[in-house]
Design a protein around this nucleic acid. Structure first.
Lengths: 108, 108
DNA sequence: TTAAAATATGAATATATATTGATATATACA
DNA sequence: TGTATATATCAATATATATTCATATTTTAA
Protein backbone atom coordinates (compact mmCIF):
# COMPACT_ATOMS: atom_id res chain seq x y z
CA UNK A 1 0.00 0.00 0.00
CA UNK A 2 1.32 3.41 -0.94
CA UNK A 3 1.65 5.83 1.96
CA UNK A 4 -0.78 8.71 1.68
CA UNK A 5 0.77 12.13 2.24
CA UNK A 6 -2.55 13.54 3.42
CA UNK A 7 -2.95 10.73 5.87
CA UNK A 8 -6.51 9.70 5.19
CA UNK A 9 -5.67 6.10 6.06
CA UNK A 10 -7.78 5.03 9.02
CA UNK A 11 -5.03 2.70 10.22
CA UNK A 12 -2.41 5.41 10.27
CA UNK A 13 -1.07 6.07 13.74
CA UNK A 14 -0.90 9.81 13.14
CA UNK A 15 -3.96 12.04 13.41
CA UNK A 16 -5.49 14.04 10.60
CA UNK A 17 -5.10 17.79 10.69
CA UNK A 18 -8.70 18.66 11.47
CA UNK A 19 -9.04 16.28 14.40
CA UNK A 20 -5.72 17.47 15.73
CA UNK A 21 -6.88 21.07 15.55
CA UNK A 22 -10.18 20.47 17.32
CA UNK A 23 -8.63 18.35 20.05
CA UNK A 24 -5.77 20.74 20.72
CA UNK A 25 -8.10 23.75 20.79
CA UNK A 26 -10.36 21.97 23.26
CA UNK A 27 -7.54 21.09 25.60
CA UNK A 28 -6.00 24.52 25.21
CA UNK A 29 -9.27 25.91 26.53
CA UNK A 30 -8.91 23.69 29.59
CA UNK A 31 -5.23 24.49 29.99
CA UNK A 32 -5.70 27.89 31.57
CA UNK A 33 -6.47 28.31 35.30
CA UNK A 34 -8.89 31.18 34.74
CA UNK A 35 -10.93 29.29 32.18
CA UNK A 36 -10.93 26.20 34.36
CA UNK A 37 -12.30 28.22 37.27
CA UNK A 38 -14.99 29.75 35.07
CA UNK A 39 -16.09 26.42 33.61
CA UNK A 40 -16.03 24.75 37.00
CA UNK A 41 -18.23 27.53 38.38
CA UNK A 42 -20.65 27.08 35.48
CA UNK A 43 -20.78 23.37 36.18
CA UNK A 44 -23.10 24.08 39.10
CA UNK A 45 -25.33 26.71 37.53
CA UNK A 46 -25.53 29.70 35.20
CA UNK A 47 -23.86 33.01 36.14
CA UNK A 48 -23.84 36.55 34.81
CA UNK A 49 -20.51 38.01 33.70
CA UNK A 50 -20.31 40.16 36.80
CA UNK A 51 -21.43 37.21 38.88
CA UNK A 52 -18.48 35.22 37.64
CA UNK A 53 -16.13 38.14 38.22
CA UNK A 54 -17.33 38.53 41.80
CA UNK A 55 -17.34 34.83 42.62
CA UNK A 56 -13.81 34.36 41.33
CA UNK A 57 -12.46 37.84 42.12
CA UNK A 58 -11.56 38.58 38.54
CA UNK A 59 -11.98 41.76 36.50
CA UNK A 60 -15.04 42.04 34.30
CA UNK A 61 -12.92 42.49 31.21
CA UNK A 62 -10.87 39.38 31.96
CA UNK A 63 -14.00 37.30 32.38
CA UNK A 64 -15.52 38.73 29.22
CA UNK A 65 -12.42 37.93 27.16
CA UNK A 66 -12.29 34.36 28.42
CA UNK A 67 -16.01 33.87 27.88
CA UNK A 68 -15.58 34.93 24.28
CA UNK A 69 -12.82 32.37 23.95
CA UNK A 70 -15.05 29.65 25.40
CA UNK A 71 -18.01 30.81 23.33
CA UNK A 72 -16.03 30.53 20.10
CA UNK A 73 -15.39 26.89 20.92
CA UNK A 74 -19.05 26.44 21.87
CA UNK A 75 -18.08 25.43 25.36
CA UNK A 76 -20.47 28.02 26.81
CA UNK A 77 -23.69 29.70 25.73
CA UNK A 78 -25.74 32.55 27.18
CA UNK A 79 -29.26 33.89 27.53
CA UNK A 80 -30.11 37.54 27.89
CA UNK A 81 -32.24 39.11 30.65
CA UNK A 82 -32.33 42.85 30.23
CA UNK A 83 -28.75 44.04 30.09
CA UNK A 84 -27.55 40.97 31.90
CA UNK A 85 -26.17 37.93 30.13
CA UNK A 86 -26.36 34.62 31.92
CA UNK A 87 -23.71 32.19 30.81
CA UNK A 88 -23.91 28.42 31.14
CA UNK A 89 -21.88 25.49 29.88
CA UNK A 90 -22.72 24.07 26.47
CA UNK A 91 -20.58 20.95 26.00
CA UNK A 92 -21.36 17.92 28.12
CA UNK A 93 -18.34 15.96 26.95
CA UNK A 94 -15.87 18.69 27.84
CA UNK A 95 -17.54 19.31 31.21
CA UNK A 96 -17.34 15.61 32.01
CA UNK A 97 -13.67 15.50 31.07
CA UNK A 98 -12.99 18.56 33.21
CA UNK A 99 -14.86 17.36 36.29
CA UNK A 100 -13.39 13.87 35.99
CA UNK A 101 -9.90 15.31 35.88
CA UNK A 102 -10.57 17.64 38.80
CA UNK A 103 -11.77 14.70 40.87
CA UNK A 104 -8.75 12.70 39.78
CA UNK A 105 -6.43 15.54 40.82
CA UNK A 106 -8.14 16.05 44.18
CA UNK A 107 -8.13 12.41 45.24
CA UNK A 108 -4.51 11.52 44.59
CA UNK B 1 -20.30 30.83 58.15
CA UNK B 2 -17.24 32.99 57.64
CA UNK B 3 -15.76 32.81 54.15
CA UNK B 4 -12.31 31.29 54.14
CA UNK B 5 -9.71 33.26 52.17
CA UNK B 6 -7.71 30.14 51.47
CA UNK B 7 -10.77 28.37 50.17
CA UNK B 8 -10.51 25.12 52.07
CA UNK B 9 -14.30 24.85 52.25
CA UNK B 10 -15.42 21.73 50.42
CA UNK B 11 -18.64 23.47 49.34
CA UNK B 12 -16.84 26.41 47.81
CA UNK B 13 -17.45 26.71 44.09
CA UNK B 14 -13.89 27.82 43.41
CA UNK B 15 -10.98 25.37 43.21
CA UNK B 16 -7.99 25.29 45.52
CA UNK B 17 -4.66 26.38 44.13
CA UNK B 18 -2.99 22.99 44.03
CA UNK B 19 -5.82 21.25 42.20
CA UNK B 20 -6.00 24.13 39.78
CA UNK B 21 -2.29 23.84 39.07
CA UNK B 22 -2.31 20.10 38.49
CA UNK B 23 -5.40 20.22 36.29
CA UNK B 24 -4.19 23.13 34.19
CA UNK B 25 -0.75 21.58 33.72
CA UNK B 26 -2.32 18.33 32.62
CA UNK B 27 -4.55 19.99 30.06
CA UNK B 28 -1.73 22.25 28.93
CA UNK B 29 0.19 19.09 28.07
CA UNK B 30 -2.73 17.98 25.92
CA UNK B 31 -3.17 21.41 24.38
CA UNK B 32 -0.27 21.17 21.95
CA UNK B 33 -0.60 19.35 18.61
CA UNK B 34 2.90 17.89 18.76
CA UNK B 35 2.38 16.44 22.23
CA UNK B 36 -1.02 15.09 21.23
CA UNK B 37 0.55 13.31 18.25
CA UNK B 38 3.29 11.84 20.42
CA UNK B 39 0.90 10.61 23.11
CA UNK B 40 -1.50 9.24 20.53
CA UNK B 41 1.36 7.34 18.91
CA UNK B 42 2.39 5.94 22.30
CA UNK B 43 -1.18 4.82 22.90
CA UNK B 44 -0.56 1.88 20.57
CA UNK B 45 2.93 0.88 21.69
CA UNK B 46 6.32 2.08 22.89
CA UNK B 47 8.64 3.98 20.55
CA UNK B 48 12.23 5.16 20.59
CA UNK B 49 12.87 8.91 20.32
CA UNK B 50 14.01 8.54 16.73
CA UNK B 51 11.08 6.20 16.08
CA UNK B 52 8.69 8.93 17.14
CA UNK B 53 10.56 11.52 15.09
CA UNK B 54 10.37 9.35 11.98
CA UNK B 55 6.75 8.32 12.43
CA UNK B 56 5.60 11.91 12.91
CA UNK B 57 8.21 13.62 10.71
CA UNK B 58 9.54 15.74 13.53
CA UNK B 59 13.11 16.65 14.45
CA UNK B 60 14.83 14.60 17.12
CA UNK B 61 15.39 17.68 19.26
CA UNK B 62 11.73 18.66 19.11
CA UNK B 63 10.63 15.19 20.17
CA UNK B 64 13.20 15.10 22.95
CA UNK B 65 12.03 18.44 24.34
CA UNK B 66 8.39 17.42 24.32
CA UNK B 67 9.18 14.05 25.89
CA UNK B 68 10.95 15.83 28.72
CA UNK B 69 7.84 17.98 29.18
CA UNK B 70 5.63 14.88 29.29
CA UNK B 71 8.10 13.05 31.52
CA UNK B 72 8.05 15.88 34.08
CA UNK B 73 4.29 15.46 34.37
CA UNK B 74 4.73 11.66 34.55
CA UNK B 75 2.63 11.23 31.45
CA UNK B 76 5.36 9.09 29.85
CA UNK B 77 8.14 6.82 31.08
CA UNK B 78 11.03 5.06 29.35
CA UNK B 79 13.21 1.99 29.45
CA UNK B 80 16.75 1.82 28.11
CA UNK B 81 18.10 -0.72 25.63
CA UNK B 82 21.70 0.10 24.81
CA UNK B 83 21.79 3.69 23.64
CA UNK B 84 18.14 3.60 22.70
CA UNK B 85 15.37 4.83 24.99
CA UNK B 86 11.92 3.38 24.48
CA UNK B 87 9.17 5.68 25.65
CA UNK B 88 5.68 4.61 26.61
CA UNK B 89 2.68 6.28 28.22
CA UNK B 90 2.46 6.31 32.01
CA UNK B 91 -0.94 7.79 32.92
CA UNK B 92 -4.03 5.74 32.17
CA UNK B 93 -6.44 8.51 33.12
CA UNK B 94 -4.86 11.07 30.82
CA UNK B 95 -4.64 8.57 27.96
CA UNK B 96 -8.31 7.74 28.39
CA UNK B 97 -9.26 11.40 28.37
CA UNK B 98 -7.17 11.97 25.26
CA UNK B 99 -8.49 9.02 23.29
CA UNK B 100 -12.07 9.74 24.33
CA UNK B 101 -11.73 13.31 23.11
CA UNK B 102 -10.10 12.23 19.86
CA UNK B 103 -12.99 9.83 19.21
CA UNK B 104 -15.46 12.57 20.09
CA UNK B 105 -13.77 14.97 17.67
CA UNK B 106 -13.64 12.40 14.85
CA UNK B 107 -17.26 11.35 15.07
CA UNK B 108 -18.98 14.71 15.03
C1' DT C 1 -33.62 61.06 24.27
C1' DT C 2 -30.67 60.86 27.93
C1' DA C 3 -28.55 58.34 31.69
C1' DA C 4 -27.22 54.22 33.96
C1' DA C 5 -25.92 49.46 34.06
C1' DA C 6 -23.95 45.39 32.00
C1' DT C 7 -21.07 43.63 28.77
C1' DA C 8 -17.85 43.66 24.81
C1' DT C 9 -13.95 45.26 22.17
C1' DG C 10 -9.32 47.25 20.95
C1' DA C 11 -4.65 48.08 21.78
C1' DA C 12 -0.67 47.53 24.60
C1' DT C 13 2.19 44.89 27.43
C1' DA C 14 4.24 41.19 29.66
C1' DT C 15 4.91 36.49 29.87
C1' DA C 16 4.90 31.79 28.23
C1' DT C 17 5.85 28.49 24.84
C1' DA C 18 7.39 25.75 20.64
C1' DT C 19 10.90 25.07 17.52
C1' DT C 20 15.47 25.12 15.94
C1' DG C 21 20.70 24.64 15.19
C1' DA C 22 24.62 23.68 17.64
C1' DT C 23 26.63 21.02 20.93
C1' DA C 24 27.04 18.02 24.98
C1' DT C 25 26.39 13.54 27.14
C1' DA C 26 26.03 8.64 27.43
C1' DT C 27 26.37 3.94 25.89
C1' DA C 28 28.23 0.18 23.18
C1' DC C 29 31.67 -1.88 20.86
C1' DA C 30 35.84 -2.41 17.91
C1' DT D 1 40.86 4.38 24.08
C1' DG D 2 38.51 6.02 20.23
C1' DT D 3 34.44 6.13 17.35
C1' DA D 4 29.63 5.75 16.15
C1' DT D 5 24.94 6.05 17.56
C1' DA D 6 21.11 7.74 20.26
C1' DT D 7 19.47 11.13 23.09
C1' DA D 8 19.58 15.40 25.87
C1' DT D 9 20.60 20.14 26.72
C1' DC D 10 21.55 25.07 25.70
C1' DA D 11 20.62 29.45 23.80
C1' DA D 12 18.23 32.10 20.49
C1' DT D 13 14.17 33.30 18.19
C1' DA D 14 9.59 33.63 16.86
C1' DT D 15 5.01 33.18 18.08
C1' DA D 16 1.06 32.76 21.13
C1' DT D 17 -1.41 34.06 25.09
C1' DA D 18 -3.39 36.31 29.38
C1' DT D 19 -4.29 40.42 31.51
C1' DT D 20 -5.16 45.18 31.73
C1' DC D 21 -6.83 50.04 30.87
C1' DA D 22 -9.58 52.74 28.15
C1' DT D 23 -13.47 52.95 25.57
C1' DA D 24 -17.38 51.32 22.77
C1' DT D 25 -21.82 48.99 22.44
C1' DT D 26 -26.23 47.45 23.97
C1' DT D 27 -30.33 47.47 26.65
C1' DT D 28 -33.54 49.38 29.86
C1' DA D 29 -36.01 52.82 32.06
C1' DA D 30 -36.75 57.56 33.54
Amino acid sequence: MIEDEKNTDINNKDLDEETLFVVSQTFKALGDPTRIRILHLLFHSEYSVNGIAEALKLRQTTVSHQLRFLKNLRLVKYRREGTTLFYSHDDEHVMNVLEQTIQHACHS
